[in-house]
Design a protein around this nucleic acid. Structure first.
Lengths: 244, 244
DNA sequence: GAGTGGTCTAGACCACCAA
DNA sequence: TGGTGGTCTAGACCACTCA
């Protein structure tokens, strides 16, 4: 009979508060763009000190889940704001600007997962998904060929019309129309050769080197919601990254 | 203690403490791998509360400049440790391992900056530099062709022998032999075609797509100390990145 | 047991913002 | 002017490490 061997799980109060706050966000108690209650209010609600609430909110702010604004309050992050648009886009031209990207929707189909897509996404074969193909253009020149997959059940009724209505701002649309804010993403990069078909769309020669960016985007609670393969022409644009 | 805010500029105390600590690190008061004084000691030394020192150290820890170890103390980060080696290497094979990289030094020359290098590094033409060319191999297969530049005046006497003595662990060598720890780096990625010469070294066909990684590495105080161009074969290895 | 960092509290004052 | 987040303090106790 061993009693002292039990694994005592110690979890700091502020982490527990952070979890509770995340749950409330998932439940939609506070929507993107809205403010959450003040630190004092939350402290009173959960019966902890304001400093503990602060540490929980600090952690959420560090993950870009909320944004603090001195004198105003703490707000749920949103992709609707200008400054957070293209938050995950690391591709910039030499002069640093990336605001002038234009958007051409090529395809938007409701299909089922096949073996290849299953391997890419980890979804089960046969699952209903929506595939989106589009072309991003920078000052008249095509630079990114995007292939995007989301689960149909999470984005019911998503179609070409809706994408166009939102000017191709997918993350903003996921958030506004479907209540699914993307908070984090992981990317896997490699260099590939353009196929004939890709080359045609990107207006380059077949065999031209392309930067391949596989991205998985996550919503609250580390739930993967979107898979994306971007093929980028990088002779004038570059992928910038900070290692710290 | 009284709060010595200047009327014109408001700078939080903990930021000032952070700067003072950084200065001490630059001055070499505590070397990589060593511990810095305890929070209580530092608080006493600077006449602030332990909480303020904590916040300053938290900021340094977030930037990987120091590492906290509960019960032991706070230590200056080092590239000598196993877990921090290859800290800036984001290239991993499918199974995630990146420890088996082998190292072949191709060249190490003392030269002067020409126009091309000036453009890459921002150094003045004529500045004495050391250029290093090497090949990194993963399980018998060449995967990265590195071209590295550092200023000769910052790394006096650096040569092929020294590099070999350190098994090609450059960052560890910069730190140990020259007291220059690298704390941060910025990378610019693109896809390029292998030239004939590069293809030969990497044992691939000319025209094969390579991931080009331009890196600038910084020491304390955001001082750029090393420029690097890596050309990577990415059919079996990928560059992983987290966006948050 | 002594010393370290980790967590938590309570209270104070400051800087910023909007009404 | 009142409310918000931002900074700072002082003190308490907890968890971890090592001699």
């Amino acid at each position: 009979m061993s009693n002292m061997n039990s694994t005592l799980v110690f979890r700091p109060l502020y982490e527990q508060i952070k979890s509770v706050l995340t749950d409330s966000l998932i439940a939609g108690e506070w929507k993107p763009g809205e403010s959450i209650p003040s630190e004092m209010d939350l402290a009173a609600r959960y019966g902890v000190s304001q400093g503990t609430v602060r540490k929980a909110i600090d952690a959420l702010a560090k993950e870009n889940i909320v944004v603090r604004r001195q004198g105003k309050g703490t707000f749920v992050s949103t992709h609707k704001e200008q400054n957070s648009k293209l938050r995950f886009l690391r591709l910039t031209s030499a002069d640093g600007s990336k605001e002038l990207l234009e958007n051409e929707l090529l395809e938007c189909n409701r299909i089922k997962v096949n073996a290849e897509i299953a391997k890419l996404t980890g979804l089960k074969i046969g699952t209903a998904i929506i595939e989106i193909k589009r072309l991003l253009t920078f000052s008249q020149r095509p630079v990114i060929l995007d292939y995007i997959i989301v689960q149909a059940k999470s984005f019911k009724g998503l179609n070409a019309t809706k994408i166009k209505e939102n000017n191709g701002s997918l993350y903003s649309m996921y958030e506004t129309l479907y209540g699914v804010p993307m908070v984090r993403a992981e990317e896997k990069l490699s260099a590939v050769m353009a196929t004939k078909q890709q080359a045609e769309l990107l207006n380059i020669e077949p065999g031209f080197p392309l930067l391949s960016i596989e991205r998985v985007a996550y919503t609250y609670g580390d739930k993967p919601m979107e898979w994306r393969l971007g093929l980028c022409v990088t002779d004038e644009q570059h992928y910038m990254n900070s290692l710290e």
